[in-house]
Design a protein around this nucleic acid. Structure first.
Lengths: 197, 197
DNA sequence: ACAAACTTTGAACAGTAGGTCAATATTTGA
DNA sequence: TCAAATATTGACCTACTGTTCAAAGTTTGT
């Protein structure tokens, strides 16, 4: 059945994304991937033509799922509420479901050129989602930034690093940390505690 | 002469820090390092006993120089001014003098255990510098944060990612971008444009 | 000028990497 | 049940890795 093949491929991609996310492209061998799947290296070549193709597919699958989660959030309501939801969802997905894949978004230079394009497009997608909300908030006067691009950079940086800080927190501690992160990054767009400059 | 040996070692460490910063530990071979130095791999072993020892030394040298630059900044004046100076210096050093070494501070998991300790201590040092200034600002009422640790995390994330954004900017464009970054991250501690929450 | 100290080389070694493939095992469909 | 399709193996190849080291080249002090 084609179904079965699809599932097997998905299994492989999940494990691959995990490993590459943990240790990076160069530090993970196909033997490593195969071992975690309890098969031998040769089997991987039955599904993927090369290491590059495997990692490309892993990145794309993961990115598609992630972007889908963010795009599924409601697009109405006040900008501050929407931005909070976006940040919340992004970090939650990162920490809870893909705790080891931050590297994909972190250091594009880590990856061979063929993969960089895919990663950059993924980042562009995410950027779009956040940019739209912030632009709306700026128009409505709910937000205030020094510079939109810079604010987005900082926002993205904070979220990308978050999984590393949150790795050790679970349950209530995680929720608490997430609350604080959301409130803190909202300050980047002028929402929250105020102070005269 | 011992002087000459010291200089040679320094040359090697500079090149090594560059390369490891660019591509990470696993992706850089000793042949790569040797090639950029126009020597053969064997020569490196005359100065360093192993790849690990070389990379350890590179990290330590770089970290010492960097921390020194930050610690040399004046420790008087209003907190906002001091924090601005710290961010400015940090990003300037990163972009102008060590444009390719962000990885050292970015993904500790990239490095073998022996090196992680050194990197973490380096980060602790940096954290101290920024934490002290922010704490002073909080006491004096100049700053306002949701949570000190979270604000520091965000600040650090933004600065660490900065070299990647700034890589393409030179001259006036760089200064402008740096200004915007400094103003933006200052919002994390409640300084700048205000807005009711 | 020359010997001692310092530096670099290049070959060699064992281990591991990505990749290939014929042989084998398993599943599927009729 | 049995042959065709699908999936997995494990041995093998070549290239490259970190590392060692005897030999050769270069600097230095006298």
């Amino acid at each position: 059945m084609q179904r079965k093949r699809g599932r097997r491929i998905q299994e492989i991609l999940t494990v691959a994304a995990e490993l590459f996310g943990e240790r990076g492209y160069a530090a993970v061998s196909l033997d490593d991937v195969a071992e975690r799947l309890d098969v031998t290296k040769g089997s991987l070549y039955y599904y993927f033509a090369s290491k590059d193709e495997l990692v490309s597919a892993a990145i794309e699958t993961l990115g598609r799922a992630w972007t889908g989660r963010l795009a599924a959030l409601p697009t109405d309501g006040p900008p501050a509420q929407r931005l909070r939801a976006l940040v919340r969802e992004h970090v939650t997905v990162a920490v809870r479901e893909h705790p080891t894949t931050l590297r994909l978004f972190l250091v594009p230079d880590d990856w061979p050129p063929p993969q960089r394009a895919a990663i950059k497009e993924l980042r562009r997608w995410h950027d779009r989602l956040f940019r739209d909300v912030i632009e709306e908030g700026l128009r409505s006067g709910d937000f205030l930034v020094v510079d939109l691009d810079t604010a987005l950079h900082c926002l993205h940086a904070a979220m990308t690093q978050a999984p590393a800080w949150f790795a050790a927190r679970h349950g209530a501690a995680f929720d608490q940390a997430l609350d604080r992160l959301v409130d803190t990054v909202l300050m980047l767009v002028g929402v929250g505690p105020k102070l005269v400059s």
